[in-house]
Structure formats: C-alpha cells, structure tokens
Amino acid sequence: MKINFALSAFLGIALFASCEKKDDPAAANRTELISEKQWILTAVTVDPALPLNGTLVTNWYAQMDECDKDDIAIFRKNGVYEFNEGASKCDPNAPQTAQTTWSFNSTETVVTVGSSSFTLVELTKDKIIDTRVHTINGINYTFTETWGIKPS
C-alpha cells in the first residue's frame, strides 16, 4: 500500500503557512519566498503511523525510493509550477519535466498545484513545511513534508 510520492510531489508540492504576520511590513512576500527556487524534499512524516508490510511507519521519507528524493519543484512567479525528475528517474520513460499551475488561497495559507491543495505550516527563504491529508481505508493520515533548497 505504498503511496507514490513522486506523483504526490508533482500534483502538489505542498506548502505553507508562515509564522510571520502578513501585515508585518518586515515580512517577506510569500510569493517572493517560494518562487524561482529549486525545492527538494528533505523529510516526510505520517501521523498516525501507517501500516506497511506489517510495520507501523511514521518516517515516510525513509520508505521513498532514492529516485524520488532528488525530484525538484519550482514555483514560478507567473503561476507556473515546474516538476523536474532530478538526476535519477524512477521511470526512464517519464518526461524530465512537467508543468501545471500553482496559486495561493486568499489568505496565503493553502497552496494549490494543479488540482491538489496543501496547507502551509511554514515558509521561509530556505524552508517549506506543509501538510496534506490522505484517506486510506477510511483512516485519515496527515503527511507532513519538509522542503529545502537544492544544494548547488
């Protein structure tokens, strides 16, 4: 019952609710914080623990294929979201890049990528933490993703 996080990442690189107050003039614009950077997953947890092959798993990142861990997400200022397979591709026939649209909701606490939406927990110049809920066999599992800037 493995969830394909490459597809999940493509459909929704989840995002963000900043700890900074929106009306704080020193707070960076959220579009500026998220845009034009190469984001990669650095951690994924699940709560409650998800049964996988007879074991309860909370560290979903450890279950992911290495070829999914180098995928890159880019949020363009013009509302285009770009997904890049990175250096290693799980499916050699998959395109290297794919694009769709992205946008914030009116309060900039939810990001929609294509047809998927994700709640922003934190957004800084070099870190994104988001949550999304997947219902599996009638149980709601909250996945928390942490994204960082791709190292040069």
Rank of each mutant, 00 (worst) to 15 (best):
K22H: 08
A43W: 00
D24V: 11
T45K: 10
L52A: 03
I34Y: 09
Q38H: 13
D24W: 12
L52D: 12
K21R: 09
I40T: 14
S35C: 08
I34T: 06
R30Y: 00
T42Q: 07
K21T: 00
A27M: 09
A49T: 08
T55Q: 15
E36L: 07
D24E: 11
T58F: 02
E32K: 15
K21C: 01
A27H: 02
A28W: 03
P51Y: 10
L33S: 06
V44T: 11
V46T: 07
N29F: 06
V57T: 08
W39Y: 08
P25C: 10
A49E: 11
L50V: 04
P48R: 09
S35D: 04
Q38E: 15
T45V: 07
L33R: 13
T55R: 12
I34V: 15
L52P: 02
P25K: 13
A27V: 10
N29W: 05
A49P: 04
T58P: 01
A27P: 02
V57S: 02
P48N: 11
W39G: 06
L52W: 05
Q38Y: 01
E36R: 12
A28E: 13
A27C: 08
A27R: 04
R30F: 00
T42H: 01
G54V: 11
L41A: 14
V46C: 10
L56S: 15
L33P: 06
D23L: 07
T42S: 14
L41F: 12
D23F: 00
Q38P: 03
A26L: 10
L52K: 09
L50I: 08
V44W: 03
S35I: 01
N53K: 12
I34E: 10
Q38N: 15
I40F: 00
K22Y: 02
T31V: 13
I40E: 02
Q38S: 14
E36C: 06
Q38M: 11
E36I: 09
D23K: 09
I34K: 12
A26W: 03
A43V: 00
P48S: 11
P25Q: 11
L56V: 03
T42Y: 00
N29Y: 01
T45D: 12
L50N: 04
D24S: 08
E32Y: 13
V44K: 01
I34D: 05
I40M: 12
N29T: 12
T58H: 04
D24N: 15
T31M: 14
I40D: 00
L41V: 14
L33T: 05
S35R: 02
P25D: 09
T55D: 12
N53D: 12
T58M: 01
K22P: 06
D47V: 07
A49Q: 07
W39C: 04
L33F: 03
E36F: 10
S35T: 04
E36P: 05
D23C: 05
A27G: 05
T42R: 01
E20C: 10
Q38C: 02
D23E: 13
D47F: 05
A27F: 03
